[in-house]
């Protein structure tokens, strides 16, 4: 796969060293090219890329609020199409908070109405912009500032909401999971999402050095461990047909993914076993 050298998210933005969200946007825009309009939900991405009078976006970009990226994207899409700009890609980026929690209704409406747009949830598994509070996408056992480990707590008590399957239940033509650590797989999916007529949803696993607690040089390594342990499964559902797009040659124990991260470091063997069980069940269910 040829990956364009041109960067449509300029360097010099205010992301942390090792920021996975900026990698997500760079890759997505390399896949789409310049003829693209982006919509952002409020969150890390919006704040770090557009402190007025600066912007890192080399393509047109709009942000309105936290919970309405789906609806704003709907309006943008409708306005472009009525002007005959059918070839312009419309892509919305929302974090896990802006997507699976507060923005769920707005996104559901956008998907159900059939707008020709792509929505990417860059999932770093908590509200990172406001300092690591749990979201509906925070995994079982992760400690965050609002699901803290404590005397009577091992962190988040519930597994993450299965957002891609909620999107799939909308009957939209394309749903995929992806990881920033598998750029070709991700970019292929972004291209496919843009080419398909109608709404597309990509749920992107995006390690966060600050929120997950690992060295900033290890973002890609962490993303790979998520996938190689089966904690995050790469698949797509194209017009209802489910396919795994990447199979680890040998699935690694989940402990290898959990142990390097500060958010899981407090977990005892019993909890790790339970997480291994979750992962095994999910892999069995999806046929990995």
């Amino acid at each position: 796969m040829e990956i364009p050298k041109e960067e449509l998210l300029a360097p010099g933005h205010r992301g942390c060293a090792g920021c996975g969200a900026s990698i997500a946007v760079r890759l997505a825009l390399k896949a789409l090219g310049k003829n693209t309009v982006a919509i952002s939900a409020t969150g890390c991405l919006e704040v770090m890329t557009t402190p007025y009078p600066e912007t890192a976006w080399e393509i047109p970009w709009i942000h309105v609020a936290f919970e309405n990226a789906g609806a704003v994207a709907s309006g943008v899409e409708a306005a472009l199409r009525i002007q005959g700009k059918d070839d312009v890609n419309v892509i919305a980026f929302g974090g896990d908070g802006g997507t699976v929690d507060i923005g769920l209704q707005s996104l559901s409406g956008a998907m159900e109405r059939g707008h020709n747009l792509t929505y990417i949830c860059y999932d770093n598994e908590a509200y990172m912009n406001t300092g690591i509070q749990r979201s509906g996408a925070t995994p079982y056992g992760a400690t965050t500032t609002t699901s803290p480990k404590g005397k009577d707590s091992f962190g988040e008590e519930k597994p993450k909401k299965n957002m891609p399957m909620i999107m799939a239940a909308h009957g939209i033509p394309y749903v995929a999971t992806a990881s920033i650590a598998y750029p070709e797989d991700f970019m292929k999916k972004v291209k496919k999402a843009a080419e398909i007529d109608g709404p597309a949803y990509i749920h992107l696993n995006q390690p966060c050095t600050t929120g997950w607690g690992y060295d900033s040089s290890k973002t890609i390594e962490m993303g790979r461990l998520a996938v190689e342990t089966g904690s995050w499964i790469l698949y797509e559902i194209e017009n209802g047909e489910f396919n795994i797009t990447y199979r680890p040659t040998e699935r690694k124990p989940v402990a290898e993914y959990l142990k390097p991260q500060k958010r899981f470091r407090h977990l005892d063997d019993e909890h790790i076993e339970k997480i291994q069980e979750f992962v095994d069940n999910e892999c069995a269910e999806l046929g990995l």
């Binding site: 609806a71 704003v72 309006g75 409708a78 306005a79 002007q83 559901s108 956008a110």
Partner: peptide, 28 residues
């Protein structure tokens, strides 16, 4: 009327889509 009528799922989305569309340069 030659317009896109967006059947939004709430008023919050009605005004959000309106801002998005106006941002894209059309009368809303």
């Amino acid at each position: 009327i030659d317009a896109k009528y967006i059947k939004v799922e709430s008023e919050h989305s009605a005004i959000s889509a309106a801002v998005g569309a106006s941002g894209a340069g059309v009368r809303v």
